[in-house]
């Protein structure tokens, strides 16, 4: 019922308030919103082999005193017709989806186990989950090269134990990319799940047991549905960045099948075709728009809930 205090005394405050609001607003508008507008604009431009690598959309022709607009839809045509792009888009979505599911399958039981452990050990486990997140992401992905490569730790161990007699091909495979994504993003799955599971009222499970539900059934009928917001948040936090992932496939992935992030930066730095790269970026953004909006709604609700 009560609105914010600062809002109530707005008459005396409006100048200061406006300034405080304007600073972050201005920053984000200039450095976050405008760049997307520029990407959108350039995705309709013609490529020119000069710096910058695109032709202007609007041109003021002095002699005829007219503003001429040249829209080029060819960049998007390339996107839809060239099977390379469609292929990499689908492959990226597949990799992200499979990694997300694997992450959930590993992360959920871990989050559950932490949430149900004694409060004293809970903090220790949480610290252990978060600790890798504070160390370099790049180096953690790099660590897997040492484990997965032909004469790497895994192959050496299996060979010396006599389990295999030929080294397995592990590095530069889909498997390596899944491992890399699951490994890097696991904390992002566990943390929202944990913060959801930790809030559950355990008497609900006692009530379910009292009414005759076996633990297994009680889990599927009570705990799982209640943890849905955590599942959705965790999956989005993994899925969205994974689709555009660049570092992991570059270090661990196949060379014959690229992910969209790799193609994007190859177009940008290699081919120097900024308009097509922009069109790819817009395409990727459109694909991810729905999940991003979903995530924002979740984030909003979380904040509202934490307010009393």
């Amino acid at each position: 019922m009560a609105t914010s205090t600062f809002a109530a005394v707005s008459t005396a405050l409006s100048a200061g308030r406006r300034l405080v609001t304007a600073v972050p607003y201005f920053w984000l508008a200039v450095f976050f919103a405008v760049p997307f507008a520029i990407v959108f604009k350039i995705s309709f431009s013609y490529m020119v082999p000069a710096q910058p690598g695109y032709a202007p959309l609007f041109e003021w022709l002095e002699e005829s005193r007219r503003l001429v607009a040249t829209f080029n839809l060819a960049n998007y045509q390339v996107l839809l017709q060239d099977s390379l792009y469609l292929n990499t888009f689908l492959y990226s979505l597949k990799v992200a989806a499979i990694s997300t599911v694997l992450c959930l399958l590993l992360g959920y039981p871990m989050a559950y186990a932490i949430a149900r452990s004694a409060p004293t050990t809970r903090n220790l486990f949480l610290m252990l989950i978060i600790l890798p997140f504070w160390t370099s992401f790049l180096l953690r992905v790099y660590a897997w090269i040492g484990l997965l490569k032909t004469n790497g730790v895994i192959n050496n161990t299996l060979l010396s134990l006599g389990i295999i007699d030929q080294p397995l091909v592990l590095l530069y495979t889909d498997f390596a990319v899944y491992v890399g994504i699951v490994y890097s993003y696991l904390p992002f799955m566990i943390l929202p799940l944990y913060s959801n599971l930790e809030k559950h009222d355990l008497t609900l499970l006692e009530a379910a047991a009292d009414l005759g539900a076996r633990p297994f059934k009680a889990f599927f009928k009570i705990t799982l549905p209640l943890s849905m917001p955590g599942i959705v948040a965790g999956c989005l936090l993994v899925f969205i960045p994974a689709v555009g992932e660049f570092v992991i496939p570059s270090l661990l992935g196949r060379t014959d099948q690229l992910m969209i992030g790799t193609v994007l930066s190859a177009q940008f730095f290699g081919a120097r075709n900024w308009p097509v790269a922009s069109a790819v970026a817009i395409g990727l953004l459109l694909v991810l728009l729905l999940p991003i909006l979903l995530f924002q709604r979740y984030q909003q609700r979380e904040l509202e809930a934490s307010r009393r």
Partner: peptide
């Protein structure tokens, strides 16, 4: 609760106008 007593008090304090 919700009868308006707190809002009235907050208007006296100046938190609401």
């Amino acid at each position: 609760s919700g009868c308006g007593k707190t809002t009235l008090l907050r208007m006296l304090a100046g938190f609401e106008s």
